[in-house]
Design a protein around this nucleic acid. Structure first.
Lengths: 384, 384
DNA sequence: TCGACTTACGAAGGAGCGCTTCATTAGTAG
DNA sequence: CTACTAATGAAGCGCTCCTTCGTAAGTCGA
């Protein structure tokens, strides 16, 4: 439950230091007075706090803002550049990476194409290239990294081992965390990509401020990620959101309706078929429209199951097919309305392809916060 | 997200007071030294804390335990009797009530039978009788009550209004919270009964210490309650767990297999038919066994949906039919195994009919804790 | 250019809280 | 009755935050 430790005076100071850091991270550079007011402390006390934080390297002074009345106030800012975070999206066809500062501000992004059936080592090499690219772009080195957060398809257990991956054969049974830890001498976090995408939408996307979200990954494969009470929900064995495994939920084969539509011309490679069908449906092709209807029919069953179980505030449609949200959204709403007890909002992702990378960065930021703001840690660590 | 308030010296004291109360609630009477050690404070400091708490009426001294070496130590205990909590289970056929002290220790219980189609006022009168009975048994008065927590069938919105209730027609559209607040001059909480049952199992039943639990109410009606990350999950519109609304989940009509079994003799009232079938299956009646198999087949589909969505550590089987858990459990496990990605533990409820009442009490206790231990409250209130 | 005004800074003094230390007290064991 | 044990209570210290007040560094208007 909660901790049973009482507090020392130093604990109080620590609390106030953390409050100051939080306020600075949230509101950018602040004067001492503003900071003190936000934190509910007196100015002299806050001065001591900031002095200490500056000594530790967490905070630094910036030039006062000119043009104000009265004596210019000192301003302080959180040193978000005292460390860097990397988010990686390991997809079937692309490996994306982004590098951010400690506030999650993205400073560089790269993409490495990779074949779905590429052997393991090639895939790992591509990850390294993607991250190196980010480091080069932002003129940082691997030793500046505090955390690398990775989102990947498949089910990953608590220790970072891949348990199941339908899309990427080479991934199976891999000790992904172990391999990445060899590659990067810092904290390595691994999470399912749909869950990270869900997180991204609640922090920077269409679901900002929403506490309970179901994220649907609609694309050539189906997936779901849950945010419950503002936190990513993994499940006891890190296998939450795998509703597509249930035949009755009709998710697993749903994309086939789009892939096998008669409206797709000869010679179109199979991986582009669904896109063709969706485009044709937008233009009113009756065959395509019918295929889309069947697809959404199936999609709605599994989605309704999740909505009925969780009663989320919002359902977010993401993944490759969400580019055709205009074709899908209203139909999905209609089908869900018939099945749900309380209809949630249904929206399309606003982050698109960036979803997972952004989610990985947010995940790393959150992890850092948890480390920082855990009540049971000792004195605040010195940066570097 | 989190609060941005810094702390005062008094805040520290408050923190330590709460820590002391917590420790005393958890571990019963404690000496000053023991208390200080648990809380990580020095003895003199803890002395001041307890002095203050005694002044406020939260804590009292008890006689020292004899037979110890050295000077006898003063002992303190949390005054769990400075207020009382009531939990009510409003079922179709019975209204149960229990009265507990602030630690959730149950001091009195009553039961009032009521007909499922009884008019509204009669039902409300039965609630009042059930609670009055508890008060009389424990020699307390309604003014000693701090909280009344109620569990009821149906979907109840955030304001305590009944939105949907298949089993109790008179319940529909009722402002239950309003009516109960007229009845009891204290805090009134309302929650769905399956959710309270789920909570009860995680606190005092078979799922103690488990953070993610799916509770199945199996009986003449089907229901589910979720505990996620140790907390009851209501959902945005308080409609979580309503998977039985989805035809594909095959829950809604599942009990019919048991009700309409040819093994049930003529003249058995319809509400006892399922019980007969389950008993016959236990004795090996092939018709009954077949009915049970079909029942569990259906039950497993909706259950698998919840398990795949949430990946809980445990599934608890409760409700009326769980008395026949021996007949159901292994079959359910077998069917689930085939459908789930990661198989959760599947157990029978250990609290039986008490489930909801106990859950209501636990809910009231938890609510009290939240009030007490919220970081943003002023000085600790004086009891009475 | 100078004085009035505004806002922030910095030092001083005070109160609250928790810590350590130590002589004292109230029991048990032999 | 004495030795031992463990808790008590009082005294003194250090840390953190508070309030107060004189001083400093800007802008604004004459």
């Amino acid at each position: 439950m909660a901790d049973l430790r009482g507090g020392d005076l130093s604990r109080l100071r620590q609390l106030n230091s953390l409050t100051a850091i939080r306020a600075l991270r949230r509101a950018g550079p602040l004067t001492l007075s503003a900071l003190a007011e936000r934190a509910g402390l007196s100015r002299p006390s806050m001065k001591e706090v900031t002095d200490e934080l500056m000594g530790l390297g967490w905070v630094e002074e910036v030039p006062p803002s000119p043009g104000t009345m009265g004596r210019p106030a000192r301003r302080y800012r959180f040193r978000a550049d005292s460390g860097y975070l990397v988010g990686v999206d390991i997809g079937g066809h692309n490996i994306r990476a982004a590098l951010s500062d400690l506030d999650g501000e993205i400073l560089a992004e790269t993409r490495q194409p990779v074949l779905p059936d590429a052997p393991l080592e090639e895939r790992l090499a591509a990850i390294e290239r993607a991250v190196s690219g980010c480091l080069a772009l932002s003129r940082t080195t691997v030793s500046d990294l505090w955390t690398v957060a990775v989102g990947t398809i498949g089910v990953i257990d608590v220790e970072g081992r891949v348990i199941y991956s339908a899309a990427v054969p080479a991934w199976r049974d891999l000790d992904l965390a172990g391999r990445l830890r060899e590659m990067f001498p810092c904290q390595v976090l691994i999470e399912n990509d749909s869950r990270l995408a869900a997180m991204a939408e609640t922090r920077r996307g269409v679901a900002q401020g929403v506490r309970d979200v179901v994220f649907l990954h609609v694309g050539r494969r189906m997936g779901a990620g849950l945010v419950i009470d503002g936190k990513v929900h993994r499940g006891f064995g890190a296998a939450s959101g795998e509703i597509s495994m249930l035949p009755e939920a009709r998710w697993f084969d749903a994309p086939e309706h789009l892939n096998t539509c008669a409206c797709v011309p000869e010679g179109v490679p199979p991986e582009d078929a669904a896109g063709h069908t969706l485009a044709a449906a937008r233009n009113g092709d009756p065959l395509a429209v019918e295929a889309v209807e069947r697809y959404v029919d199936d999609l709605a069953v599994g989605t309704a199951a999740m909505v009925l179980v969780l009663d989320p505030q919002m359902v977010v449609l993401g993944g490759g097919f969400s580019r055709s949200a205009d074709v899908l959204l209203d139909r999905l709403r209609e089908r869900l309305e018939a099945r749900c007890m309380r209809m949630p909002e249904v929206r399309a992702s606003t982050l698109g392809d960036e979803c997972v990378v952004v989610g990985a960065i947010e995940y790393a930021v959150e992890h850092l916060d948890d480390q920082l703001f855990r009540p049971d840690r000792g004195p605040l660590p010195v940066t570097r």
